[in-house]
């Protein structure tokens, strides 16, 4: 797509979208929001970029390897927070022991876990987009 307006708008909007995503992410602690929504919003920024410019351009700012690494990292973070609680002497996925008080512990735990969820959701969306974006759905290509 060679529309200059779209390109400029995308460049301008790219950061605010991510910022909004982060807002939804961290606001999820107190109100509606959270990792799922935030992840999709951040992914939308990248997908918009890829649609307006090209998938190759998007792969420069988000290389598939990094994408996959972050995907695994997000899920790992989720699990790891649980393990930390486990090592500190509580059952798995119990966040009470993470902070000084029960509430503080829950706060830190949920924050980290939601961040992991957001990271994973975002990267899953992007990698789904990558894997379907460049595919030629015509008849069998003779390669």
């Amino acid at each position: 797509m060679d529309n200059i307006i779209l390109k400029v708008c995308t460049k301008v909007l790219f950061t605010p979208i991510i910022l909004f995503g982060l807002y939804v992410q961290f606001h999820g602690d107190f109100g509606p929001g959270g990792g799922f929504q935030a992840g999709v919003i951040v992914a939308a920024a990248f997908i918009l970029y890829a649609m307006v410019f090209s998938v190759e351009d998007c792969k420069v700012i988000m290389p598939p390897k990094l994408n996959f690494f972050l995907l695994a990292l997000g899920a790992f973070l989720y699990g790891f927070v649980g393990i930390v609680g486990l090592i500190l002497g509580d059952p798995y996925l119990s966040y009470d022991v993470l902070g000084s008080s029960k509430e503080a512990g829950q706060h830190i735990g949920i924050l980290l876990v939601e961040f992991g969820v957001g990271l994973t959701v975002c990267n899953v969306m992007i990698s789904l987009f990558y894997s379907f974006a460049n595919f030629n759905f015509g008849k069998k290509n003779n390669d």
């Binding site: 695994a72 790992f76 393990i83």
Partner: peptide
């Protein structure tokens, strides 16, 4: 009881990358 589930789970995330 949880370790038998999360050990392969966590390792699968490490192995993937």
């Amino acid at each position: 009881p949880i370790l038998i589930v999360i050990t392969p789970l966590m390792f699968s995330l490490i192995v993937a990358v």
